Amino acid sequence: MQEEVNNTEQSIQHVLQLYPFEVQNITLLTTKSGRVTWEVETDQGVKILKKTDVHPRRMWFIAEAHEHLQQQGLPMAPIHRTTNGGICVGAEDHAYVMYDKVEGNEIIYYHAENLNKVMQYIAQFHIASKGFNRTEGTKKRSRLEKWQKLYRWKLQELEGNKQIALTTMHDPFSQLFLANVDQMIQRGREALQALEEEPYQNWVQETINNGSFCQQDFTLARLIEVDSSPYMKEFHSITYDLPSRDLRVLLNKLMKKLSVWDNQLSIQLLQSYDSINPLTEEQYKVLWDDLKFPHMFCSISHKYYLAQKRSWSNEKYLWAIQNVIAVETSKEQFLQNLPSIYQEIKKGGL
């Protein structure tokens, strides 16, 4: 164990020597989820050194996107290059990046004004991402033209989990799952069929042409408030995908926390986004189709039938699926009224 600690310290010292800073002190901050971060006090301010268990060529891709957003003026922690100009430092199966440590206030989900600002920030992110040209040799990640495959895989898994549930009908989770799975499968099939239509195909081609990307998961834990505005304190990953991916993930996540789909809040948040990065009615249809697909229902059943959350009790799983069903059920009215909601979004009113 001591030998491992010594080897890690030697590696960190070697990495830090590659940067144009005089290091004064190093403090280990966090070790979790394949990421280790250190606070590094230097002659040019406090930095964050992050080690991530991803392939160096993937981190190269992410770090270049970070720098691209920074150069486009998006408020985020500046990333630093090594003395020799490297955007990250690679090892066999992991990589390091360094960026400024930035202090600010926590942004919480249960504050409407802050959420509106976050939606505007996401819009700024999507605009700033355009024109990104990755260096040849970086390992990109893309979901463009892959939604059909993902939807089919999730629907197949739902069908498989349905067969498992039929053999465990005494189980309260399976009873709830079976009471709702057919409706979820039907919604998923309708969403899958919609991907064959022009709105999705056109937006995919436009995104390919403009080189834009999305964050994948805009969790508020990565954002802080600086000077009353959102600021990205750390940057984990990106993928080439439609902007609606980020909107769908955040809206679903927020409504799951509220345990109900709030139509007015959803409209208000989309107005905030649209005030910075206006979308067409066709593009909103793609978002509606993605919201129709039962991503949350697929996720909780995937966790349960694969026993992924070993620390979760049966009661917690039961609460989780009840919550997801409540959100998906209350979402129906929202999904059925795109034309009128689109008009309301375009009225603004911020």
Rank of each mutant, 00 (worst) to 15 (best):
F334V: 03
Y110P: 00
A63N: 05
R57D: 13
L250S: 02
P20A: 05
E39N: 04
K233D: 07
A63M: 04
L144Q: 10
L269E: 09
H94W: 10
Q13T: 14
A65Q: 11
K285P: 00
S275E: 11
N277Y: 14
K347N: 04
A194Y: 11
Q44K: 14
E282P: 02
W261D: 07
T219G: 15
Q17Y: 05
D289N: 12
F173D: 05
L338C: 04
Q24I: 02
E282K: 15
V97G: 04
M232T: 06
D43A: 07
Y110L: 12
S311P: 00
Q183Y: 08
W60D: 09
M1Y: 03
E106D: 10
F334I: 06
Y96K: 01
A95D: 06
D262L: 02
M296W: 08
M59V: 00
E157T: 03
F125C: 06
V23S: 09
Q215L: 09
K32R: 15
L242F: 12
I79M: 15
V97E: 05
A95T: 03
I108Q: 08
R245S: 12
S259H: 12
P199D: 06
W203N: 02
P75D: 11
S229T: 10
F61E: 01
E145R: 15
R141K: 14
I79Q: 14
Q283R: 15
A112N: 05
E4V: 15
